[in-house]
Write a protein that binds this DNA or RNA. Sequence first.
DNA 1: CCTTGAACTCAAGTTCACTTCAACTTGAAC
DNA 2: GTTCAAGTTGAAGTGAACTTGAGTTCAAGG
Lengths: 160, 160
Amino acid sequence: MNSRDLLPMGEISSRSGFAASAIRYYEAEGLITAHRSAGGQRRFERGVLRRLAFIRAASNVGLTIEEIRDELARLPGNRTPTKADWHRISKHWRKRLDDQIAALQRLKGGLDNCIGCGCLSLRSCAFSNAGDWAAERGPGAQLLPDTLRRPHPVKRDSSS
Amino acid sequence: MNSRDLLPMGEISSRSGFAASAIRYYEAEGLITAHRSAGGQRRFERGVLRRLAFIRAASNVGLTIEEIRDELARLPGNRTPTKADWHRISKHWRKRLDDQIAALQRLKGGLDNCIGCGCLSLRSCAFSNAGDWAAERGPGAQLLPDTLRRPHPVKRDSSS
DNA sequence: CCTTGAACTCAAGTTCACTTCAACTTGAAC
DNA sequence: GTTCAAGTTGAAGTGAACTTGAGTTCAAGG
């Protein structure tokens, strides 16, 4: 771990595609670690790029920071995932995606039914009925699993 | 529109499944309207229940408040949707669901590829590569459409 | 009349995953 | 030695869709 092998913020940022602020945030959250230069600047090991790739992939699948942290922690000794690790993890992720797809398809099925009846009735229409099979959940979204609830902003790129 | 036909907050709330606070919020946002009692309490017309059912359904599909407001406004004269209206609207919603499903399936396809290679490499793995085909988007989520970004809290029910 | 539960308002809080800002310091090149 | 891009910090802001809280008033029953 020669100091020549350590990368500064800018390089990690451009190579990973994450903004510096995001990388600092991930460090604060314990998803990655950094060394410091004499003057206090961050110096990253190369492996951090892999971790960041993992973080991006996990985030694409819809995992929260907390879940990503757990998943990273489960990799023994903070190592880069082996093929076996990755196999196990991606199985997990795949199930998550399958669940999400299934939920949307159920929703669509309900919609298709309702096209026929044109009802949208509180009493008989399962698609919008709060007290029926899509019972006691949050306010707006009843048929969707937690993982498919509404998005949050994520500012669009200022370039372009 | 006899005053006997107007429903108070509690009844609208329990029949629709929305919290009173949510209903007040929807009113403030212009999704529904209410009359007032002599003392200033809200009195709702029965039709509001249908509107709320519509709001729930739309919210299930993932529409924002803004989109729901637009969609409601497009119903001429604030009327309850006719069969034709509903047909048009549900076609729109169906397309949205189809897009979301397709996006998840693309994502899953990428994941399946990666199980084979076990790579998760910044250079070659499209699933986590920021600069490749899943190019310039927000920070975390690259392959997901805006409609499928991360959820927001929605407090769990305190009853139960 | 009195109590009690339901409703009211308005401001502030919540969550998540970051970004933005202001004010300052580093460090590499010239 | 000067310059200036790149880096640092901590606090505050963002957005959606509500919820919570404090303090007050309404309305129906007894």
